[in-house]
Write a protein that binds this DNA or RNA. Sequence first.
RNA 1: GGGUGCGUAGCUCAGUGGGAGAGCAUCCGCCUUACAAGCGGAGGGUCGCAGGUUCGAAACCUGCCGCGCCCA
Length: 864
Amino acid sequence: MELPSQYPAGEVEQRRYAAWLSAGAFAADAASDRPPFTMVIPPPNVTGSLHIGHALDHTIQDALVRRKRMQGFEALWLPGMDHAGIATQNVVERQLAAQGLSRHDLGREAFVERVWQWKAESGGAILGQMKRLGDSVDWSRERFTMDAGLSQAVQTIFKKLFDDDLVYRAERIINWCPRCLTALSDIEVEHSDDDGELVSIRYGEGEASIVVATTRAETMLGDTAVAVHPDDERYRHLVGTEVELPLTGRRIPVVADPHVDPAFGSGAVKVTPAHDPNDFEIGRRHDLPSLTVLDERGVITAHGPFEGLDRFEARPAIVAALREQGRVVAEKRPYVHAVGHCSRCRTTVEPRLSLQWFVRTEPLARAAGEAVRDGRVRIAPPELAKRYFAWVDNMHDWCISRQLWWGHRIPVWYGPDGEVRCVGPGETPPSGEGWRQDEDVLDTWFSSALWPFSTLGWPEKTPDLAKFYPTSVLVTGYDILFFWVARMMMFGLYAMEGTPPFAVVALHGMVRDQHGKKMSKSSGNVIDPLDWIDRFGADATRFTLARGANPGGDVPVSEEWCQGSRAFCNKLWNVTRFALLNGATVAGALPSPGALSSVDRWILSRLQDVVEQADEQFEAYEFAKACDLLYHFAWDDVCDWYVELAKPVLAAGGPAAEATRRVLGHVLDELLRLLHPVIPFVTDELWTALTGSLTVATAAWPIPAQSYLDPSAEAEIGRLQRVVTEVRRFRADQGVKPAQRVPAALVGLAEAGLDAHEGLIRAIARLDPPGEDFTAGASLAVTGAVSVELDTRGTIDVAAERARLAKDAAVAEKEIAQCRAKLGNEAFVGKAPAEIVDKIKTRLAAAEADAVRIAAALATLADA
RNA sequence: GGGUGCGUAGCUCAGUGGGAGAGCAUCCGCCUUACAAGCGGAGGGUCGCAGGUUCGAAACCUGCCGCGCCCA
C-alpha cells in the first residue's frame, strides 16, 4: 500500500468513521455473554454544539470504552441529549418573537409542536460533531430525555416520589429568572462578585429611629420588620417597638433575631420576607407578613409613585426619594457583593416567593453520600470525594417545577375541592368539572438524573437494563459533580433499589488556555475543537487533550501543543510507512528470544514494559501518563533508536533482516493497538495497512509477554546508546557536520559486550574504521572499559574539547563529593537502609572511575 | 465568611522521603534516501518564604505570603 509522506487526517477520518459504522464496531449486544462495560454519555443539551470541554470529556470516555472493547468486554457507550427546557424554549420563543409572536399566541399544544419541529430541523448539531471527534457510541441506542420511554420513566419516578412523600408543593422563596419567567434550582444560579451599592437608611424618627444598610433599597417597599441581634445593646430598647417605614407610612416592628450579624453595617437589617431567603426565614420565626412588591418580571407592584418601575429603575428612584427626605445616612458605591445570575441568560436572579414543587432531598442525599462512603461507588481521584460529601451533606430541597411548556408536565391534577392527585403511567387522569393538571413542567435535571437507567429501558425490565445496568463509569468534569453525579446517584439508588447508577465516577478538570486561564468569550481565548479537527486532525485534538488529562486536574491546551500532537501522528505515520517499505510483517509467530539479536530483544523487552505500564495507567484514568509513556516509547525508543539500529540490519538482508522485519511489525502492531483508544483514526489506518485486517477497533488489547522481558539486553543496548551519544556529543561540540564520516577506533567493546554491535555503532555514529594513516586526535571515555579514539585530521578544537571534559569532570567531582559526604556520615551509614548505602557506594565508584578517565583524556589533550 | 486545592525550568505541568524531570519555547549544527509536521546537540531551576521532624525534605509538620475554584 502506497502512503504519502504526510498523514492526510481529514480524508482518513471520514473514511474510517464510515467503516466503523458499517462494520457495526460500536454496537453492543445485550444477548452477549461477554462481561458488560457500560457508560452513558452525560447528555449534552439539544441546543448545544461541541465545545472544547465536551471534546475532553468525550476523548476520555472514548479512550476508556475503546480499550474495554478491545479487552473483550461487551462495551456500550450510549449517546443522547437532554431537552434543555429553558434553553430550548428560549430558542423557539426568540424565533417566534422575530415574527412578532409569543408562545401564548400559539397556545401550549401548538408551541410544543413547534419545539419538536425545531428539534427535527436544527436540534442536536452536537451529534454530528461527536462523529467528527471519533466517538465510538452505539448510535442505535441514541436517546432523548423527551422520548416516550424516558418520559414514562419520569412519570413513574415522580409518582413513586409522590407516594413516598419525597416530593411536595410549598410556597417558598425560590430563585426566579425575570427574563425566562421561571423558577430555577440553586445550581442553575451562578454567583459573581458585582459592583452594587450599599445604602444606609434611617427608619423611624428621633429616639425611635434605626439605621439599616441594604444593597436592595427598592425592596424596602415590602419590608415588614427591622431585625437586630438579641444581644445587641445598642438596639435593645427598640426591640418590641415599631418604627415608621419611610415612603409608605406603614409602621413595622423591630424584632430580635440571632441570625442578624451585629458587625455588619449598623447591626440592624431590614426584613423583606417576600424578596429575600434569609428575610423569609426571619419572617417565619417571627410570624411576619410577606408583602410582595415585585411582579414576575421584576416590576414594582406596590401602590405609589414607584409602581410600574423595573427593579433597577426603582432602586435609584427610591434612594433619591429617601435622600430628599434626609433619610439616607450613608452611601457606598461601588459596593462589591455576590449577585446570582440565571445560568441560561445571565439575568440577575430575583428571590421570589412562590408555590413550587420540591424534592425532599435529605433521605436521598444521605443515601447518595453513603454509597460513596461505603465504597460501592468510587470517586476518582479520591480527593474529590470531599467536595462530593460537602455537597450531598448540605443539600437543600430541590426546586423541580419550571414555569415552562417545554418539558415533562407535572403529572398532578387538582380537583374542585382542593384534591391533589398524582397520576402514574397508564393511569387515567381525573376528569370532570373543576379538575385541571398542574401547568408546570419538571426541571430538565429531573429527567437527566434518570439517564443511567431510563436510557436502558427502565421502568420496563428490558434485556438492556439487565445486561448493562449499573453502568461502569461516569466521566465528567469536577465542576459538574453536583449537577450530574449527585442527582443521578440520588435517583439511581432510589429507583434501582439501592443499586448505584455507576461503579466509578471519573472526574477530569476544565480545559484552559496555555496560561491556565479559563476560556471565555470575553477573554477571547476560546478554542473551537471543530476548528482544530479541521486544521490538525481529530487525533491531534484528542491527543492534546488526553495528554494533559491528569485525574481531576485542569487541562491547559494551546494551538502549539496541538501542532505537536499532529507531529506525533505524522511520526507514527512515517515510521509505519518506513516499516511497510521495508517489508515489516505481522505474519507468522514471533521468533523466540533465543533466535533474535540483542537489539530486537531490547525493543521487545521495552515493549512488554510499556504494555504493562500503559495498561495500568489507562486503568487508573491516568491518561496524561499513558500518553506520555506511549509518546516517548514510540518516538524515542522505536523511531529514534530501534529504527535507526534496524536500518543497517534491513539493508544487509538475510535471516537477521527477516527477524527484524517480523519484530518491527510486531512492535508497531502492539504500539498502534495501545494508542488506538486515544488516537483512533491514524492508528486504524496504519494498523489495517500493516496487518491487512479490517479494523483495530475490535482487535485484542495487548498483554505483556513475560518471556520477552530481557534486562540484560536492555542494559546492553543502554551501553550502546551511551557510546553513540558520547560520539554525537563530541561531534556537535567539535562542529563536525552530520554528514562527515570520522575515522575512529572503538576500544574495549568486547569487555562491554558490545563487540557484536561495532558495525551498528559505526553506522549510526558515522564513524569509519581506522585507516592506515589513522591518528587519534581525541579520546572519548564513554563508560566502563569503552573508549572511542577519533581521528579528526588535526582539526580538533582543543578549547571546545577541554571545555567539554572540564564540564564532565565537574559533574564527576560533584558526584564524588556528595557520595563521600554521605558515606562519611556515621548517622547515614548507621540508619539508612543497606540498599541505599550500597547504591551510594556504587555511584561513588562509578564517579571515581569517570574522574580518572576524564583526567587522562585531559592529559592527552595537553600533550597534543 | 465556610470548604477545598495550588505555588517545581521562560510557559504549561509531572514528580510526594534516598541521584531535580517532560512537552512546548530558546540557542547551535544539519534536507544523514520513513518523517524539515524532521534529525543531532546544548543551555536553563535558592522546587513561594521561614521554621521544624529526619541520617536524609521538592516531598512530611507548623506558620507566613501569593493564586485558584466551590459554597454562602
